[in-house]
Structures are given as structure tokens and as C-alpha cells.
């Protein structure tokens, strides 16, 4: 059953009024991991931000249906309260805010024990991190994990992740995919994952391939990945690095 339905969505930049997305349509199933793939500038992040209602992107046509409700005109926090959330590619830092406070920001009822469990789930030692500040003293990888912990704490139904694997080395991002599977299992949420890496095939259920702001194809992961690799003339590389994609 579809958790999120995007119907003919067109989006312009709020800064220069340039059309970035044209008639995008796709569906995200419940309890699934759906990958958005495409080259730089194809509109992946714009789609993610437009779905979340970030105001610098203007929806000029189409609709977003979440939990059978048209949310196209709702604000960011209204969407979040319905169970949708987003983790930015480069998470913001917060001076004077502890990890505990940050995890409780959107869910005041969450217990300290639960926040510690969430930190363990995303691979951070709770005692070491719970009282640290969400500021520049954290490494990039630690901050990304805390961003994930923060979205899990909300108990969302849909988590949008904008390139959580960007800037991470190979060992860490493979660990990250394990964490995403844990998140899916623990929260029973769907994940819309933006990624450039072929290795997301290890965890993805479905995918959508975007090019120049248009949907090229959408469906089960492997055929979409095949199309994407062909477009990049990278199929051989994909197969070499990802034996699981041999039957593409």
C-alpha cells in the first residue's frame, strides 16, 4: 500500500523562479526503502525538500498525498506532525544544545532510556554522547548519526534522507546501510533515500531515476538501477563493485 503518492509534481526554485522538477510522479510503499537516484543537478534534493515543504522551493503543479491526505499546502511542521521528517545532507549544528535535548526536541515524551537505545542503534555509545553538544566539536560522521537518531526519536512514518552516505568512507557507509536497515526494522518507517552509490542496492526495495528534473523510471530497484547505470555507461563498474547486481 502506498504511504506517499506524488502526482505530476512540478517545482520551481524560490530564488530564481527556474523550473527544477517537471511532472514528477512516484509512490512510496509502507515499510520500504525507496532510493532516489540521478546525476548531480537531476533534482533529487529538490524533490526531497519540496516533499518536506521547505519554503525555498515552490510547488507550481501537481500534488503530494501522504497517508491519503493532500499535504501539498501544509507547512514543514504540519507535515512533520503527520509523521514525515527529513535529515539534511549536511546537518545543522546547534550551539548550547545537548544531544539529549536535540533528540527530545520533537518528542518531549521520549525517555532517557529510549534516547540511549536510539544512540546505540545508530552506533554511538550513549554515555559518551548523550550530554555532548550538537556543535562543531562533533565529527561529520558523528553529526550525521545524531541526525539519524533525532529522526528516529520522532517515531516517523516516512524518513527522507538526503545523501546520508555523502562524505563517508567505504567502511562507514556500509555500516550506515546496516543502520538504515535497523531503522526500518525498529521503526517500521519507510525511507526515501537519496544516494549516488550503487551499494544502496544492498538495502533498497524500490527506486526512482531522475534526470534533468524528470522521472525516467520508477519501480523495483534492480531494473531502475540498470537503467541508471546504462545512462552513466557504468554498468561494468556497477557489476564489479556490486555482485548482488549481476542479474540486472
Amino acid at each position: 500500500m502506498a504511504l506517499l503518492k506524488i502526482k505530476n509534481l512540478s517545482v520551481k526554485s524560490g530564488e530564481n523562479n527556474k523550473e527544477i522538477l517537471k511532472n514528477i510522479s512516484l509512490e512510496i510503499d509502507e515499510k520500504s526503502i525507496h532510493v532516489l537516484m540521478g546525476a548531480n543537478g537531476s533534482g533529487k534534493s529538490t524533490l526531497a525538500y519540496a516533499l518536506m515543504g521547505i519554503s525555498r522551493f515552490k510547488v507550481t503543479g501537481g500534488s503530494v498525498i501522504f497517508l491519503n491526505k493532500n499535504i501539498t499546502k501544509l507547512s514543514i511542521d504540519q507535515r512533520a506532525k503527520m509523521g514525515m521528517t527529513l535529515a539534511f545532507q549536511e546537518p545543522a549544528i546547534f550551539e548550547g544544545i545537548s544531544v539529549q535535548d536535540f533528540l527530545r526536541a520533537g518528542n518531549k515524551k521520549i525517555s532517557r532510556k529510549k534516547t540511549e537505545e536510539i544512540l546505540s542503534l545508530i552506533g554511538l555509545e550513549p554515555k559518551k554522547f548523550i550530554n555532548r553538544y550538537v556543535d562543531q566539536t562533533l565529527s561529520g560522521g558523528e553529526r550525521k548519526r545524531i541526525e539519524l537518531a533525532s529522526v528516529i526519536a520522532l517515531k516517523p512514518k516516512l524518513i527522507i534522507l538526503d545523501e546520508p552516505d555523502a562524505g563517508l568512507d567505504i567502511i562507514i557507509y556500509r555500516e550506515l546501510y546496516g543502520i538504515l536497515e535497523n531503522i526500518k526494522r525498529e521503526t517500521k518507517a519507510s525511507i526515501l533515500l537519496i544516494s549516488h552509490r550503487e551499494e544502496v542496492g544492498l538495502i533498497a526495495d524500490r527506486a526512482t531515476f531522475l534526470r534533468r528534473g524528470k522521472t525516467i523510471c520508477s519501480g523495483p530497484f534492480r531494473p531502475v538501477m540498470r537503467k541508471y547505470c546504462q545512462s552513466l555507461k557504468r554498468k561494468e563498474i556497477c557489476l564489479k563493485t556490486m555482485p548482488c547486481l549481476k542479474n540486472l
Binding site: 521528517t85 545543522a92 520533537g106 529522526v151
Partner: peptide, 18 residues
């Protein structure tokens, strides 16, 4: 900071709360 604001709003806080 706009990004800090948007991050907290994606966690369900209103603009004033954030």
C-alpha cells in the same frame, strides 16, 4: 540560522518554538 530553523521544523516544532 535558516537551516537550524528548518531542521527543527522537520522535527515538528513550529517556527516560533524552533
Amino acid at each position: 540560522n535558516q537551516k537550524e530553523l528548518e531542521t527543527l521544523m522537520t522535527r515538528g516544532l513550529s517556527e516560533e518554538e524552533a
